[in-house]
């Protein structure tokens, strides 16, 4: 990345880049993760210069959450269910909390505690430490209710046609609860899958 690009990014985040150049830069950013990272850094610098608070270590936290997901294993227990395209579904036992945080981080539901965001977070903050440290509570981890409130509010606002004119990215919710047992619970999972496969094969017979 040369100095000219850096200057363009700097001007862009300051809102001072001419439109034609901004469009070109945005196109490049769409293809280049390094440019996007640099823009993010400059935005962070701008926030610091304006005296705005931010949550130090949040990037590290998200990395650790992602790592936590990779370390987890999905529950082996299968719950037979009527599924699209004959596929089997499983409950989210075990992975639910971590997956929830990851999805939320990606899609803008990263809750930042207002009180503690000004206190900063140690760079080596880990998921486990977050959960135990009363000085920095992540509501979506320790307070499922608050997360549900955000989601309910988003849905209600959309029904009113307001509130969502900015980014209304899909806000998938992952619950901690396992799936409810359904009618097919007398059937062994393997048998159910075998039945599904047989049905699929039958459907493709001439």
């Amino acid at each position: 990345m040369n100095d000219q690009i850096r200057m363009q990014i700097s001007a862009f985040v300051d809102g001072e880049l001419p439109d034609a150049e901004a469009d070109l830069l945005l196109r490049r950013m769409g293809q280049d993760a390094e440019l996007r990272r640099k823009a993010g850094e400059y935005l962070e610098i701008g926030r610091a210069m304006r005296g705005e608070s931010s949550v130090r270590g949040i990037e590290r936290l998200q990395e650790r959450v992602a790592a936590g997901i990779n370390d987890e294993t999905l529950a082996d227990e299968e719950v037979p269910a009527e599924l699209p395209k004959g596929r089997s579904m499983r409950p989210l036992v075990g992975v639910a909390v971590a997956a929830s945080v990851a999805l939320i981080a990606i899609f803008g539901l990263q809750v930042t505690p207002g009180v503690d965001s000004t206190n900063g977070i140690a760079d080596d903050t880990s998921v486990a430490e977050v959960a135990e440290d009363p000085g920095y509570t992540v509501p979506q981890q320790v307070d499922e209710q608050l997360r549900q409130f955000y989601l309910s509010h988003g849905a209600s606002s959309t029904e009113q046609g307001a509130n969502g004119m900015n980014a209304r990215l899909v806000t998938l919710r992952v619950s901690e609860e396992p799936l409810p047992e359904e009618d097919a619970d007398e059937t062994e999972p393997d048998e159910a899958e075998a039945a599904d496969e047989a049905a699929d094969e039958t459907a493709t017979q001439p």
Binding site: P113, D143, H153, A167
Partner: peptide, 26 residues
């Protein structure tokens, strides 16, 4: 702008005070 107010039975584990999600505050 819309604001939702939720009234729930008090839970000891509930966090009090402010929080933020992008441009949304609670």
């Amino acid at each position: 702008a819309n604001i939702s107010v939720f009234v729930a039975e008090q839970d000891q584990a509930s966090a009090a005070g402010p929080s933020r999600v992008g441009g949304s505050n609670s």
